[in-house]
């Protein structure tokens, strides 16, 4: 049963006193954090937004108002950044899954490349919105 924990090898704690701090572990944990943000904040917001759009126009108008306020803008920025980061690092992971870019310098280089891609996707999204 998949609900039984710890039947596959689990990942080690890469932060805290066990390992020396490395940029690669920060990039990795941020990937998980953005995934959690997208699940806990973005997914409920997006689904409620869609439900309101289709079933409750007055709630939709209120939501659009909320999203144009500063809290809403902050949540939206978190969403855009998280999608961009999780997407860019996800592509990096998919490349690793095919056995490519696995040398130590390549892991570093693709990490920086992923950060550049994240920034580009984020800026591009705001440019489209403007």
């Amino acid at each position: 049963m998949s609900s039984k924990p710890h039947q596959r090898p689990i990942s080690p704690y890469m932060l805290g006193p066990y390992y020396r701090f490395q940029i690669t572990s920060l990039l990795s944990i941020t990937s998980r954090l953005t995934g959690v943000y997208l699940t806990v904040v973005t997914a409920p917001l997006a689904i409620i937004w869609l439900l309101a759009l289709v079933f409750a126009p007055d709630v939709f108008v209120a939501m659009q108002g909320f999203l144009s306020g500063w809290v809403g803008k902050l949540l939206a920025f978190g969403t855009v950044f998280s999608v961009a980061y999780h997407l860019a690092n996800g592509v990096r992971h998919l490349a690793w899954d095919t056995g490519r870019f696995f040398s130590k310098p390549q892991i570093r280089q693709t990490g920086y490349l992923m950060l550049v891609a994240t920034a580009l996707i984020t800026v591009l999204t705001y440019w489209v919105a403007a």
Binding site: A46, L53, V54, F60, A76, V83, T125
Partner: peptide, 17 residues
């Protein structure tokens, strides 16, 4: 999703629907 979100930021109900 990003493109849709960017296009619909501040949109009124009729346009979004």
């Amino acid at each position: 999703f990003l493109w849709a979100g960017a296009s619909l930021a501040g949109a009124d109900h009729a346009a979004a629907l």
